[in-house]
Nucleic acid binder design. Sequence first.
DNA 1: CCCTGATTCGC
DNA 2: GCGAATCAGG
Length: 224
Amino acid sequence: MSWTEERIATLTKMWEGGSTASQIAEELGGVSRNAVIGKAHRLGLKARPSPVKAKAKKKPAPKKKVAAPAPKPAAKKAAPAKAAPKPAAKPEPKPAASTTNPSQPLPNKQEDLPKIVSYGPGGFLRQGPGDQQAPIPPAPPRRLVPAKPSPDIADKTSLLDLNDRVCRWPMGHPGEPDFHFCGEKVNPGFPYCVEHCGRAYQAQLPRGARRPPPPLPFGGPRVR
DNA sequence: CCCTGATTCGC
DNA sequence: GCGAATCAGG
């Protein structure tokens, strides 16, 4: 498996969403937990509550079992000394001007809601009924430059384009070059547009009066 | 034991 | 760049 735009997008989204590396790996498929972590680091988006970060113990020369324990005067990757002790360590947690938007000083301080989210098979957001009411309607009227990672999906709704107002119904299948999301305006109160709400939420019919199989996302044959 | 993320380093 | 192996804390 290779790290395509979509896979990286999913990884990033989930990682930042708080999903564990295992969950992400399982979601992406074809990659291990380590692969996810490794990639996450390479993407520069590490820094997350890790159980093994509290005490940064130094490593007593782990030495990979393979490498010969022979003394290496000039180790190819010797630790470049821990420079910059920075005694005056009191750096202001600069919020780092969020993409700068002078004309709109949005509060941007809407509580640190844990907001548990999960992701469906395609990395789409899976919400519980309780979350569908969108407790925080004043979604920042972000009008940032999309900066599409790929021109191929220039007019498609990618994972990165998802927000509280667009339909999250997946179109196509993850991993495919044109995988994207519906992107239509949502049916207020739901994560999908009116049309897809009809697919997602079907009235429970009486026994025996059941209709066709529930066309869940990724659940059945490809529909597009 | 299980889980977690961090890190190293051969490929 | 990738990820298995490994480390290390919960």
